[in-house]
Design a protein around this nucleic acid. Sequence first.
DNA 1: TTGTACGCGTTATCAA
DNA 2: TTGATAACGCGTACAA
Lengths: 333, 333
Amino acid sequence: MAGEFKDRVTIYEVAKAAGVSLATVSRVINDTNSVKEETRNKVLNVIKKLGYKPSGLAQALATNKTTSIGVIVPSANYVYISNMLNGIIEICKNKNFTVSLYTTAHSRIDAISSIEKMIKSHVDGVIVFDDELNEEDIEVFNSYNVPVVAINNQIVASKIASIPFGYEHVLKRLMLDYFNKGDKTMTFLHVHNAGRLLSRIENCFIQTHLEHDREYGIINCDDSYNRTYLDFKERFKKVKKEFVIAYRDSIAAAVLNAAEDCGLKVPQDIEVISIIGTKYSSIIRPTISNLYIDMQEVGKRSVYMLVDLINNQLVDKVYKFESYYIKKDSTKF
Amino acid sequence: MAGEFKDRVTIYEVAKAAGVSLATVSRVINDTNSVKEETRNKVLNVIKKLGYKPSGLAQALATNKTTSIGVIVPSANYVYISNMLNGIIEICKNKNFTVSLYTTAHSRIDAISSIEKMIKSHVDGVIVFDDELNEEDIEVFNSYNVPVVAINNQIVASKIASIPFGYEHVLKRLMLDYFNKGDKTMTFLHVHNAGRLLSRIENCFIQTHLEHDREYGIINCDDSYNRTYLDFKERFKKVKKEFVIAYRDSIAAAVLNAAEDCGLKVPQDIEVISIIGTKYSSIIRPTISNLYIDMQEVGKRSVYMLVDLINNQLVDKVYKFESYYIKKDSTKF
DNA sequence: TTGTACGCGTTATCAA
DNA sequence: TTGATAACGCGTACAA
């Protein structure tokens, strides 16, 4: 429609204007081979004058490398995920990779379609932190020769590396310790469809209680601050003593706020821990005891591993992150 | 190195296997023109059997469309930004666009290099929410014919749309109201290099005070919970009455926590508002009065506008988001 | 309805 | 040190 359309400058036009062949221009761009200083400068000047920028598309098509990676997560809206994302992006900047972001919103359909799109777009590698995708799905990438780093998921395959999280060990020790010194029944907040990590931890929770012949509670809870707050305001009308294990800080905060609003004391009456601690664990009052993994570091590490995987020089395909317990004011110990 | 390299299936192999020309395969893929039902099925079967996925690169090179957009923000680590990001991604999924994410970390060098990369990678459009980039920088995109939606930044140019934020109006009314009913001096937390939005608001703050011949305070503060908390713990040894205007929830929380730890009452002794409210305004206790804009909606709107801009059918190039005041427990009014 | 041939903007191989 | 020229994988007039 608009007549002022200004076409992209191509390598060919640069060559013409500089009076050389396009091969020479290509050499200058990639400073490969040797080009006479004189012609190099001539070409560089023309490039600057014309505002030429090589087409990443054409380069990618010719070299079979896009220097872009795909990242797939359930949502960008969780603090621990954006922390990870930030780590990923930071290292990608150093390594000159571009990040394409895909979210599943806990929908398997979205997850599958994301895989399709990534393969179509020739990403050089993929970082997966999403429970909608199982081992089989991830191996689809491999069949298209796309390396994958799977976070919170231990998979072994040729072009797949993984970063598993260690929560069970710490949690179990925490629980055993509490069995000795604590005075409350522990209740686990089960969230429907919240992924494998939470399930694993829930299993650990149950298992440990069974092994030691202890009573425990499990209650369903929405993955929402407001719902959980309301549920617990109701619950705390009857229950006056409880140790609650919540998935995230927001959920833990909902329990804490409900407790306070019901006149219960933390940690005397109610104790709470958050499994995935973030900086909000220290901001919210009372501060929330939590199991911590530095997600920014996870993000960084995942890129390091992926880049090595892409270059066929990754030695150790598994890099485990152990969580550690940070005692704050929401628990006694 | 590894011998098990499996090349990508191309349209040509599909054509050969199906006994048709590659043009026909292309037609089937894009269901353009008419293809006989019989041959279509034949081709589709081969596609499925071979696991063929069209190369986005080649398609993009041929059609001059990448169906990908670039998003540039200071960081993925702020809650209000990830909210926006989530909105952007959601609509992009609907519209079948891929999102490439760039962060500047408040570095102009990073910002400039992001622009370069986006242009190289042929993004169909860009969403800019970053103060490192000024009007001139953004017009670079235009010179390469890349449409831009600028958030929190009103720019007029042919292929640029903008989403300005309205804070001043609400803030001013709030202050005037407080001049009448309030009992404290207002202090503005100045953050070095925090961008135009905060500067604008600071100006409004000063201006309004001057106009009404009122005293006011401005203090420098780091964009960090911990630093701010420590600073205010020190400050509240002397200052016992203050109305503080903070940029974000975390910073506001730092002030609130410091006040509490100094034995000051909120909102009797200390009042606090957060300019960019998020869900944490309601989670943190006391809850934080704030100026709210639904950043998820901003994100969605920005994509709608960008897509229209790309298709040359955007009618209104400016869509303003007005903030509104949400009164919580950290202020009296 | 189908096939041929060219173009998209690069890199890379081979000669010169 | 340079220049032709063939890929790279697709879309699309044009012709059949």
